[in-house]
């Protein structure tokens, strides 16, 4: 089982967490077109490799945070705060 390093509680087992999907998706303004709204709701980068995503420590502190994770190796590269912007995926 994967161990995830919660920024508040430290390393915990995967089944305490909820995966929240791709991070850093910006909600468009109310005047946006249908295409932009579709992209916001449904279109995802879904890469094979480096991915930045949101996780929640549901059965712990219940805090949301960001994780940079590789979708091919499942290796977690970095855990960072929910208010931090996208990280350089190569770093």
């Amino acid at each position: 089982m994967k161990r995830i390093d919660c920024p508040w509680c430290g390393p915990r087992a995967e089944n305490e967490f909820t995966w929240g999907g791709e991070a850093h998706i910006v909600r468009p303004g109310l005047s946006c077109g249908d295409g932009q709204w579709r992209d916001y709701l449904f279109t995802r980068s879904n890469p094979r490799g480096a991915h930045q995503e949101r996780w929640c420590h549901t059965y712990g502190c219940a805090q949301w945070f960001h994780v940079a994770r590789d979708t091919l190796t499942h290796r977690i590269e970095r855990v960072y705060a929910i208010d931090e912007g996208p990280v350089d995926a190569t770093g």
């Binding site: 089982m1 994967k2 995967e14 089944n15 909820t18 995966w19 879904n46 094979r48 490799g49 991915h51 995503e53 994770r69 979708t71 091919l72 190796t73 499942h74």
Partner: peptide
């Protein structure tokens, strides 16, 4: 419960 391209199983 998370995106993956690894054709292997998670224990959960």
């Amino acid at each position: 419960v998370y995106t993956s391209y690894a054709q292997r199983s998670g224990l959960q």
